[in-house]
């Protein structure tokens, strides 16, 4: 019996494992009769539960709405390329953030960025075309930025990020106006150390909807910083900004606890 994996049955059943953990667990499951038995038992115990629930009449028109949505999927892209697109975008922020924060030449940023993209392409040949388009878009955006970079900027808004839990830490969020849009600069200190795959993720919150706005890791003293370019779509306003500790990078909705937060 291997405790590391056998302890994960609950999370496996409730679908709370990352893809990687899930694969590892399933691999372990094949080799561990104890876990097979336990899983089977729990699944058997749960299996009947739905049959003791009252039936509810579905709302009128649901069938059409659901099936229309399902079949309209056909023409649009399936979820896999979409997800990769999101990842690619995160890669873009990271490359930008790195280039900006370290004050590197933009051309190096382009190379780094292209490198990240190319790595993905190598393993995902079939996605070649959409990723190339991504690169072209990103390159043209970078060129635009380069032009923009030469003009002086000034902050349009500045706010202190306060700690929300016992973890401590503090931060500063600054919004900078640029010709091509707004740039967000987050600087933090005294944050708790990250473990494993954890990252700190910045979120911009509009009403109840958090949107990812860059992620970062901290140094040994808990300092970190990240810049993020806000989409150009006009004058979208944000209600709040928060930093959460996420169990892994690239989450599109928050899963971890908020550590810092402020209203905008």
């Amino acid at each position: 019996m291997n405790d590391k994996y056998c302890g994960k049955i609950i999370d496996y059943i409730n679908d709370q494992l990352t893809d990687k953990e899930k694969q590892e667990f399933e691999k372990h499951l094949n080799e561990c009769p104890d876990c097979q038995e336990e899983l089977q038992e729990l699944e058997d115990l749960m299996g009947d539960i739905p049959s003791y629930m009252n039936e509810v009449t579905p709302p009128p028109g649901m069938r059409e709405r659901v099936l229309d949505e399902v079949f309209s999927e056909e023409d649009s892209k399936s979820d896999e390329p979409l997800r990769i697109e999101k990842n690619a975008r995160t890669g873009k922020w990271k490359a930008w953030a790195g280039a900006l924060a370290a004050g590197l030449l933009l051309s190096i940023g382009v190379n780094v960025f292209t490198g990240i993209q190319l790595n993905q392409l190598a393993s995902q040949n079939e996605k070649l075309e959409s990723n190339l388009t991504d690169i072209q878009v990103a390159l043209s955006e970078l060129q635009e930025r380069q032009t923009d970079q030469s003009s002086p900027v000034k902050p349009s808004q500045r706010t202190q990020l306060a700690s929300t839990g016992e973890g401590g830490g503090e931060g500063l969020a600054t919004l900078i106006e640029r010709k091509i849009g707004q740039e967000l600069l987050i600087q933090v200190q005294d944050l708790a150390q990250l473990e494993g795959d954890e990252v700190y993720q910045v979120w911009l919150i509009d009403g109840e909807t958090p949107e990812p706005a860059g992620s970062f890791m901290t140094d040994a003293s808990g300092n970190g910083a990240v810049t993020f370019t806000l989409e150009e779509d006009g004058n979208k306003s944000w209600d709040a900004i928060a930093v959460s500790k996420e169990p892994q990078p690239n989450n599109t909705t928050p899963q971890g606890d908020i550590v810092l937060q402020s209203e905008l």
Partner: peptide, 30 residues
């Protein structure tokens, strides 16, 4: 439809959410 919707409704306690779940399930299936 009825079995899964009833179940989703019982889990989410919300008709709108239960319909979203149905959508999600059948999109995945497709």
């Amino acid at each position: 439809e009825k079995l899964l919707y009833s179940f989703a409704y019982r889990m989410t306690n919300d008709k709108q959410a239960a319909e979203e779940v149905m959508q999600d399930v059948f999109v995945k299936l497709w």
